[in-house]
Simulated scan of single mutants.
Amino acid sequence: MDKKPVDVLFICVHNSARSQMAETFLNDLGKGRFKAVSAGLEPGTLNPLVVKAMAELGYDISGNSTNSVFDYAKEGRSFDIVVAVCSKEAQERCPIFPGKGTRLHWPFDDPSSLSGSEEERLAETRRIRDDIKTKIIEFIAEYS
């Protein structure tokens, strides 16, 4: 009998960058052992630099929707693990999710708060993307 995938929710403020990247990496690299979704406190629109940075690694997230953590709660969804990916600075605004699941906090910089030229912001977005991917690989190893 196949083991049920571990349900993981990634949350941040806007569900436009960090949580989207984490969801994408876990669903791909977790090879069916995990089922990840993402949501935010104030769902926005996908960050175009994140879409571009992910495309560089072969991931097309341009059609992803941004989701509300409140909608998931109203639906009565439950998760085995809830991971907040808000920065340390935004931690007090980072949403929480009800339930008994394990709670983790992985602070990553917010790509929407970056300044500089487009190329400088893209370079920093790539760094954040790569940091998230590394953390996902470590997470998969730890939970496997």
Rank of each mutant, 00 (worst) to 15 (best):
E42N: 15
S117C: 06
I137W: 01
G101Q: 12
I140C: 11
C12D: 11
F34G: 07
V6E: 10
V83S: 06
I96Y: 02
F70G: 06
C86F: 13
A73C: 09
A90D: 15
N47R: 08
K4D: 13
F34K: 06
E142R: 15
E89S: 12
G32N: 01
A39N: 03
L41K: 11
G76Q: 02
S16A: 15
L49A: 04
N15W: 01
V51A: 14
E89V: 13
M1C: 04
K35D: 08
K133S: 02
V83E: 03
R18W: 01
L122G: 06
C86R: 09
F10L: 10
A53N: 03
E118I: 14
G76C: 09
S112H: 03
L29R: 11
R121A: 04
F10R: 10
S38L: 11
E124P: 01
S144L: 06
L49S: 01
D60R: 04
L104C: 05
K52C: 08
S38G: 10
T102I: 15
A90C: 05
E120Q: 13
E89Y: 09
A39T: 00
L49Q: 04
E92R: 08
F139E: 11
K135M: 12
P48D: 05
C94I: 07
L41Y: 05
L26Q: 05
G101N: 12
I132T: 09
R127V: 13
F139Q: 08
A84P: 00
D7T: 10
K35F: 14
S144Q: 09
S65W: 00
E142S: 09
P98R: 05
V50D: 01
F25E: 12
Y59K: 01
R77E: 13
V85S: 00
D130V: 02
A17C: 14
R93G: 06
A123L: 12
K74N: 07
S38T: 00
E119S: 15
L41R: 14
C86Y: 01
L9T: 00
E42T: 05
K74L: 12
N15H: 04
I137Q: 15
K35R: 14
V85M: 02
H105I: 10
V82S: 03
M1T: 15
E89L: 11
A84Q: 08
F25N: 08
E118T: 12
H105E: 10
M54A: 08
Y59L: 06
A39G: 02
V8M: 03
G63D: 11
K88W: 01
D28F: 12
S117G: 11
D71K: 12
E75S: 10
V85G: 02
D109N: 09
E75I: 12
G30T: 14
T66K: 07
T134Y: 04
D60E: 04
E56K: 10
D7K: 08
A123R: 09
G44M: 09
K35P: 04
K4F: 05
H105G: 05
S16P: 03
S16D: 02
E23T: 00
S115Q: 12
K3L: 08
D71A: 15
D109L: 10
C12W: 02
S62Y: 06
V37K: 14
M21Y: 04
